[in-house]
C-alpha cells in the first residue's frame, strides 16, 4: 500500500478536533463567546486604570490593547492548534501516551495536534478584534502583528511542553504545569517596562512571559530587526529545549493501565 509520509495527518487531526468540538452546538457557541466576554471584563480594569493615569512608564491604553491582542491571539492560536501542550503531564501520568506511541508518527507533534481547545478560539478572535480596535491597521502593521502572534504562540507551546515534560522525572506534575500556565498568562499581561533587573531576567528565562507579551509588543511599537532577532532566537532556544526534554523524558515513560477514552 502506497503511503504519504508528510505532515498531512496534522490537518486531519485539526479537522477532527473541530468536528468533535462542534458536535455539541450550544456549548461550543457558549464557550467561544464566554471566553471573549471574560477577556473584555478583564480588560475593563485597565480601562479604569488608564482613566486615572495616562501612562505607566511609557505604556498607554493603546499599548495595553496591543498587549492583550498579541497574548490572547498567541495563546489562542497555540491552544487551537496544539491544545495538548497544557495536558502532556496528565497524558503521561495516566499512561495515555501509549495510543500515540503505537502509531507511525512523531509522538510530540501527534500529541500536540490531537486536541483543540474551543474557548481558545474565542481568545484568538478576541485578539484580532482588539488589534483592529487599537487602530493603525495598515498592511505592514497587520503583518507584524501576525508575526508577533505566531512567535507568541510558538513560545507558549514550547514553554508549556518544557514545563509539562517534568512529569517524566517527577511522575506527577499536573498541578505544577497548571500553575506554570497561569504564571505565564499573568506575567504576559503586564506592561513590559514594569520589570527591571532580576525580575526581567526571570521573565525571559524561568517563566518566559516576556517573549509572549512584552517583547512582541515592543516590536510592534518600534519595529527593528534586532528586536525581531531576539524574539526569534528566544523562541528557537525554548523550542529546542522543549524538544530535547520531551525526547529524553520519553525514554523514562512507563505506560499505565488507566482506562481513558478519546474525546
Amino acid at each position: 500500500m502506497e503511503r504519504k509520509r508528510g505532515l498531512g495527518f496534522v490537518g486531519a487531526l485539526w479537522r477532527v478536533n473541530l468536528l468533535s468540538a462542534m458536535e455539541y452546538r450550544v456549548p461550543f457557541i457558549m464557550q467561544l463567546g464566554g471566553m471573549m466576554l471574560n477577556n473584555v471584563i478583564y480588560f475593563a480594569f485597565w480601562v479604569l486604570f488608564f482613566d486615572r493615569f495616562e501612562e505607566v512608564q511609557g505604556w498607554t491604553l493603546r499599548d495595553m490593547m496591543l498587549l492583550f491582542a498579541v497574548v490572547a491571539s498567541g495563546l489562542g492560536l497555540a491552544m487551537m492548534l496544539f491544545g495538548n501542550c497544557r495536558a502532556i503531564a496528565r497524558i503521561v501520568a495516566a499512561g495515555d501516551l501509549d495510543r500515540y506511541l503505537a502509531l507511525p508518527r512523531p509522538v510530540l507533534l501527534h500529541v500536540l495536534a490531537s486536541r483543540s481547545s474551543v474557548p481558545s478560539m474565542g481568545d484568538f478572535v478576541f485578539g484580532l478584534i482588539w488589534f483592529v480596535l487599537a487602530g493603525d491597521v495598515t498592511a505592514a502593521h497587520a503583518l507584524r502583528f501576525l508575526l508577533a502572534v505566531v512567535l507568541s504562540a510558538c513560545t507558549f507551546t514550547a514553554s508549556l511542553v518544557l514545563a509539562n515534560s517534568l512529569v517524566f522525572w517527577l511522575r506527577r506534575s499536573e498541578l505544577l504545569a497548571d500553575h506554570f500556565l497561569n504564571a505565564m498568562i499573568t506575567f504576559s499581561l503586564y506592561p513590559g517596562t514594569l520589570f527591571n533587573g532580576a525580575a526581567r531576567v526571570f521573565l525571559f528565562t524561568v517563566v518566559p512571559a516576556g517573549l509572549t507579551g512584552a517583547l512582541p509588543v515592543e516590536m510592534l511599537r518600534d519595529f527593528d530587526a534586532a528586536t525581531l532577532g531576539w524574539l526569534c532566537a528566544g523562541t528557537a532556544v525554548l523550542a529546542a529545549f522543549a524538544l530535547l526534554a520531551f525526547q529524553i523524558g520519553l525514554r523514562r515513560y512507563e505506560s499505565g493501565s488507566a482506562i481513558v477514552v478519546r474525546i
Binding site: 500500500m1 503511503r3 509520509r5 498531512g8 495527518f9 490537518g11 486531519a12 479537522r15 508518527r105
Partner: peptide, 11 residues
Amino acid sequence: FHVYGAIYGLD
C-alpha cells in the same frame, strides 16, 4: 477511520 487513514499516510 479517515483520521487514521491520514495518520497511516493513505490517500
